Computed example of a mutant assay.
Amino acid sequence: MTVENVSEIALIAGSILLENGAETHRIEGTVSSICESYGLSAECLAMSNGILLSIETSDANKITSMKKVCQKQVDLYRIELINSFSRKLKKNLISYADAKKTLDDIQNSPTFTLPVRTVAACMTGFVYSLFFNGSLLDGIASIFICFITYIILEKVAPFDMSQFFKNYLAGFVIGGTSLLAHMLYSPINQNNVITGSIMILLPGVVLTNGIKDVIFGYFSAGIAKFCEALIIIVAVCAGVITALLI
Rank of each mutant, 00 (worst) to 15 (best):
M66N: 10
F112R: 15
V173P: 04
K68M: 08
K68L: 08
N92F: 07
P203R: 04
C70K: 15
L184F: 13
L53G: 15
H25N: 14
R87G: 05
V127E: 03
A224H: 04
R26P: 12
G39L: 07
S58H: 06
V214D: 00
S109T: 09
L201D: 00
V3M: 02
T24A: 04
I63R: 12
G239N: 04
I94C: 13
F159V: 01
E19L: 08
D98K: 13
V205T: 07
L130A: 05
S58Y: 02
C237H: 05
S54A: 13
F172D: 05
I94G: 13
L130S: 08
V3R: 01
A46P: 10
G50L: 03
S32R: 15
T2Q: 08
L17K: 14
E228C: 12
M199W: 01
N5R: 10
F131K: 11
L45G: 11
R26T: 03
E23H: 12
A235L: 00
G239A: 02
T242R: 09
M183G: 14
S220Y: 03
L53C: 11
L207K: 07
I215F: 10
S162G: 07
G204W: 00
Q73V: 00
S135T: 15
I106C: 01
L201G: 02
N133L: 05
E23Q: 12
T124K: 11
G139K: 00
I223R: 10
T208I: 02
L184V: 06
N191Y: 14
S15I: 10
A13P: 13
K212S: 10
G39H: 08
C237N: 10
I211G: 09
Q163C: 05
I27Y: 05
N92K: 14
T111Y: 09
L45I: 13
F132C: 15
I233H: 00
V74L: 04
D213Y: 05
I79W: 00
A97M: 01
G176L: 07
L207M: 12
E8F: 05
T2L: 04
A229W: 02
Y77G: 07
Q163Y: 11
D75K: 14
F112A: 13
K101A: 15
N61L: 09
A229C: 07
S142K: 14
S33V: 06
F147M: 10
S109Y: 07
F172Q: 05
Q107F: 02
K67N: 01
I198F: 05
G171V: 01
E4I: 14
M183D: 13
N209C: 06
F216T: 08
G204I: 03
I140M: 13
I232S: 03
I246R: 06
V236I: 10
C44I: 14
L45R: 13
G196E: 00
A170V: 00
F132R: 13
T113Q: 08
I140S: 10
T57A: 09
G139E: 00
Y168A: 04
A42R: 11
K155D: 00
N92T: 13
A120I: 06
